[in-house]
Design a protein around this nucleic acid. Structure first.
Lengths: 401, 401
DNA sequence: ATCGTTCGTCTAGTCGATGAACAAAGTTTG
DNA sequence: CAAACTTTGTTCATCGACTAGACGAACGAT
C-alpha cells in the first residue's frame, strides 16, 4: 500500500518497534535472537528495541529457555496484564460485557437480558455492567485502556450511531456520553464488524486474511475483512447485506426495498414461519429462537424443516458473497450459529451446487466458535490495539486503523 | 496498513523517491521547492532525489517558471515519453489495442472485430495488433515497457486464464506465450478489473477511492477499487457479480445457478428480449446492441422499453452493491454504457427508491466516460505502474501492487 | 544600486540500522 | 574434566538517509 506520507528514520524506528512487539505478542515466549531471525532485523537493533519495550512495561523477561547447543536464551513475554480492555455487545434484547486482558483473554463477564427498554434505561444497564467490570479489573500499570461497544446498527466514521432499527435509535452519540463518564477512549462499532474482528483475532478466522463474517440474528449484518483489514466503506456503512435483494418483487421489507435477504434467512423470518405453522413449545407460548432449537433437539420435524429452509436461504446469500468476494473464509456467527447442526447441510449443499467451481477453491465455510462472544471480544480488541498504537507512537497519534 | 516487513533506510529512500516521482507525475510542472513543501521532505532531500530521477531519465527539467517575488524556480516535468505501454482489450467479438505513453495518453489505436474465431486465430489477430502498435512507437530510452491484456474471464493469481466462457477458453497461459514472443513483462487481467483501474486512473473515477466499476457487456463483471486499491480476492476471482442471485428459483444460468443478475441486465438478455419481441432493424436482420440503440434513437418505443427493463435490473444489482460496499462511486461501463440515455432514469429511479437513505450520502453514480477504452487503458496503466516500480526499486523487486 | 525574497545546493550534524567483535553461558567431545 | 564449539545478547565503530541552516544565485521592488 502506498501511503502518501514521507518516510524518515523516526517512522522506521516506530514501525520496527511495533513489529518487534507484534512478534512477541504472537510468538511468546520468544528470545531476542529468534525475533532477529524472524523479523530480519539485526540482533543489536532488536536488543535496543526490546529494552525500550521492557522500560515501557509492555513486555516482561521470563526465566531462561531451553538451550539449543549454546547459551540459554532469555525468553520474552508480552505483558498482557499491563492493562485491561472492556468490550460491550449491545444486542437487541441483551447486553453482554467482557473484561479482557490485552491479549483478549476474558477475565470477567456480565450479561443482562431485557426487552423494550428506552435508551435511558438501556444506558443505565450499560453503566451498571461497565462499572462492575471496572471493579473486577486488577490494578495494573495502565488500568482500563479503553471501552468498545458493538451495536446492531449503522455507525458513521465519527462513531455516531445513525440508525439502530431494532432498538429504535437514531443519531445517538454514545461515544461522547461514555467518554465523559469514564474518561477513557471509547470506540463504537457495528456489531457485524466487531464480530468479524473478533473472529479474525481470536476465533476461527485467525489464519485467514479475506474473511466474510455473516452475523445472523434478528437481522443480518456482514463484516468484511479484506486483505487482513476491516473494510468499512466510504462512510462506515458497508456490510448492509441484510438488504441485498435476492428476490426481485419479493415481499416488502421495512427498509423500503423488496425481497431482502434477511426476510428469508434471519431469526425474524424463522420466528415468523414458526408462528405461521402454529408451532408451540410445551411449556411456553412465546416463541424464541431457543425454543425452536429445543423443539428441533426433541426431534420435532416441523422445527427441523424450518431450519432447513433458513439454511437454504443462507446458502443463497452466501453464494452471492462467494461470487462477489472470492473469500478465503465465510463465518456464520451470532445467535443463529447455535443451530449449526440443522443449518449446515442444506446451506452447504446449496453452495456446492450453485457456486462456480473455481470459487470453491481454498474456500472455508465455518460456524463461529466464539458464539455469543465474537462481537464483545472484537470491540475489546479494537481498544487494545489502539492502546498499543498510542503507547508506541507516544505522541497522541490516533491509530490509522 | 501494517506490512510485516522490516524498515530500514533503504526502504525509506525508495519510498521517498517514489513519493517525489508521484508528486511530479500528478502535479507537473512543479518546482523542487514546491515538492518539498507538498511532501514535507527537506529541500535538500528533494534535490538529491530529483537529481537521481533526472539521471534515470524519468523526469525532465523544463525552463524556468514564474517568479513569486524571488528567484525563478526550475520546473520539473514527468518524462511521460521515456517509454510506451501497450494495452489490449480482448473482447468477445473484438480486439482493441492502444499504445500509451507513461501517463496514459493514447498515441496509437487499433481495433478488429470478429466472431467465432479459434484461440489460434484470435492469437494471430493479437499479434498483428501488437506488432503494428510496436511499429508505431517512437524510439525512447526504455522502449516498450510492457504489455497488458484484459480478458472477459477468470484470471488467477499467476495470471493464467482459468475460464473465459464467452470465448470458450479454459486454462490458457497467454502471459507466457506473449512474453516469449515479445520479451517484455506481460500482465493479464480480468476485463472488469482493468476497466475499474482505467476509470480510477484516467476516467471519471480519478477523485474517488472506493469505486465499484460495473462492466456490462455480454455478461456482467465488476471491478472493485477499495480504499484506493484494486481488490482481487483470495485467488483473483473477485467481482463475479454477474452470477449474483437476484431471483431465487429464477431462470437457469449457464453457470449452474439460477436467477443470476446477468440473465436480467446484460447485453445478452437485451438481445434475447429483442428477439422474443421480433424486433427488426431496417437494413439488417442480425440484431446487435448497436442496432437496438439505433432503433431507440429512431424513436421506436419497443426498443426504448427494452432498455428501460435493463435499466431497472441494473438498478436492482447496483442497489445490492451499494448496500454491500457503501461505495463513493459506482461506474457503469463497457458496451452497455453507450445506452446511458435510455438506462439512466429507470436505473437511478429504482436505486433512489430502494436504497437506504444513509447509503446514498456522498454516493455518485456515473456512466463511464472512457467508453470502450477503459479496459485497454487500465491494463496499459498496470504495465506503466509496474515499470516505474521496477525502475525505482532497481533490483528486480516485483511490484507488490 | 540596494534590499528583501525565493530557489536550489552544500555542509555539518543527528539518528537509527548494521556488521563485527566480544563476553557470557551453555553443550559436546575426547 | 578440560578443551572446543555454539548460541545468546551487548557494545562499538561505521554507514547512510534525512534535517537544519548557511550560502550563493537569481529575481522583483523601491
Amino acid at each position: 500500500m502506498k501511503t502518501n506520507k514521507t518516510w524518515n528514520q523516526h517512522v522506521v524506528k516506530r514501525e520496527n518497534k511495533f513489529l518487534v512487539l507484534e512478534t512477541i505478542i504472537h510468538n511468546s515466549p520468544i528470545s531476542r535472537a529468534d525475533i532477529a531471525t524472524s523479523t530480519g532485523l539485526n540482533k543489536g537493533t532488536v536488543s535496543s528495541l526490546v529494552n525500550e519495550l521492557l522500560d515501557e512495561k509492555l513486555i516482561n523477561e521470563s526465566g531462561p529457555g531451553k538451550s539449543s547447543g549454546g547459551r540459554r536464551p532469555v525468553m520474552l513475554l508480552f505483558n498482557q496484564v499491563a492493562g485491561y480492555s472492556i468490550g460491550v455487545d449491545l444486542g437487541v434484547n441483551y447486553i453482554l460485557g467482557v473484561l479482557t486482558d490485552l491479549k483478549g483473554n476474558i477475565c470477567a463477564e456480565q450479561q443482562v437480558n431485557f426487552s423494550n427498554l428506552t435508551y435511558e434505561e438501556i444506558l443505565e444497564n450499560v453503566y451498571t455492567i461497565i462499572d462492575s467490570l471496572i471493579a473486577a479489573a486488577p490494578s495494573t500499570p495502565f488500568g482500563i485502556i479503553g471501552i468498545g461497544v458493538g451495536v446492531p446498527g449503522v455507525v458513521n466514521k465519527d462513531k455516531r450511531i445513525l440508525l439502530a432499527p431494532n432498538l429504535n435509535w437514531r443519531n445517538i452519540d454514545l461515544k461522547s456520553t461514555l467518554e465523559q463518564r469514564y474518561r477513557v477512549p471509547v470506540t463504537i462499532e457495528n456489531e457485524a464488524n466487531a464480530g468479524a474482528y473478533g473472529e479474525k483475532n481470536f476465533g476461527i478466522g485467525k489464519e485467514f486474511n479475506n474473511i466474510i463474517y455473516v452475523s445472523v440474528g434478528i437481522g443480518i449484518g456482514v463484516g468484511l475483512i479484506l486483505n487482513g483489514q476491516l473494510y468499512r466503506g466510504n462512510n462506515g456503512f458497508s456490510g448492509e447485506f441484510g438488504h441485498m435483494t435476492i428476490e426481485v418483487d419479493g415481499s416488502k421489507c421495512s427498509c423500503g426495498s423488496e425481497g431482502c435477504w434477511e426476510l428469508y434467512a434471519s431469526e425474524k423470518s424463522l420466528l415468523l414461519n414458526a408462528e405461521r405453522l402454529g408451532l408451540k413449545h410445551e411449556d411456553r407460548n412465546n416463541l424464541t429462537l431457543d425454543t425452536v432449537i429445543d423443539l428441533a433437539h426433541n426431534g420435532q420435524i416441523e422445527a427441523i424443516q424450518l431450519f432447513e429452509v433458513i439454511g437454504k436461504y443462507l446458502g443463497v446469500g452466501i453464494n452471492n458473497i462467494i461470487n462477489i468476494f472470492n473469500p478465503e473464509q465465510v463465518i456464520i456467527g451470532n445467535r443463529m450459529a447455535e443451530a449449526e447442526k440443522y443449518l449446515k447441510k442444506p446451506m452447504t449443499d446449496w453452495i456446492h451446487n450453485q457456486s462456480l467451481w473455481f470459487s470453491q477453491k481454498d474456500l472455508n465455510i465455518n460456524f463461529s466458535n466464539l458464539l455469543k462472544h465474537s462481537a464483545a471480544l472484537g470491540v475489546a480488541a479494537f481498544s487494545a490495539e489502539e492502546f498499543l498504537y498510542r503507547t508506541i507512537y507516544e505522541d497522541k497519534v490516533v491509530s490509522a486503523l
